[in-house]
């Protein structure tokens, strides 16, 4: 009985890891997190590392999130002391390469939040790629 419980636990753990590593095929997504924000905020940002395991470019063309009215790809740039934010149409991940979305760089802007993003919340985000593939990731909310 104890062995059976252990095995069930191992399977549950594997299933959960697979969900976070989000499709370890052509594209894998790791370390997905969302900025926890004050309850009055209607925006937040999501970050993650997208790895392209294939030999061709992979293009992230859009994203969506159930708790946000819109999810856009944005880029923050330090331009000689000015922090400039702009929307970008797509994000290309080179063959066998990766792009890390992080504060001060690329991020997925979550706009018109339908509910607050609290520390510890799990926020499901769908990443839509140009070739038609969609990858779902669970991003954990935290303050950083």
């Amino acid at each position: 009985m104890r062995k059976l419980l252990c095995l069930t636990g191992v399977f549950a753990l594997l299933a959960s890891s697979a969900a976070y590593a989000a499709a370890a095929g052509k594209i894998s997504v790791t370390d997905a997190w969302v900025q926890a924000m004050p309850p009055s905020s209607s925006i937040s940002a999501a970050y993650m590392t997208i790895t392209n395991n294939s030999s061709q470019n992979v293009v992230l063309s859009s994203a969506s999130c159930d708790i946000a009215g819109a999810a856009e790809i944005h880029q923050m740039k330090d331009d000689g002391g000015m922090m400039r934010m702009s929307m970008v149409a797509s994000l290309t991940i080179p063959p066998q390469g990766k792009v890390t979305l992080k504060p001060g760089g690329y991020h997925l802007m979550l706009i018109d939040l339908k509910k607050p993003v609290n520390n510890g919340d799990v926020v499901p985000i769908s990443l839509h790629f140009k070739d038609g593939e969609t990858i779902k990731v669970n991003a954990h909310a935290r303050n950083q």
Binding site: I43, G69, A70, E72, H74, D78, D79, G81, M82, M83, R84, M85, S86, M87, M109, I111, D112
Partner: peptide, 22 residues
């Protein structure tokens, strides 16, 4: 310091700001 308001029709944000990082 300095900042500029950037109006954007393509983003649901409507407008965003560029600002100094100090």
């Amino acid at each position: 310091a300095s900042y500029t308001k950037e109006e954007t029709s393509s983003s649901a944000m409507g407008y965003m700001f560029d600002h100094t990082d100090l």
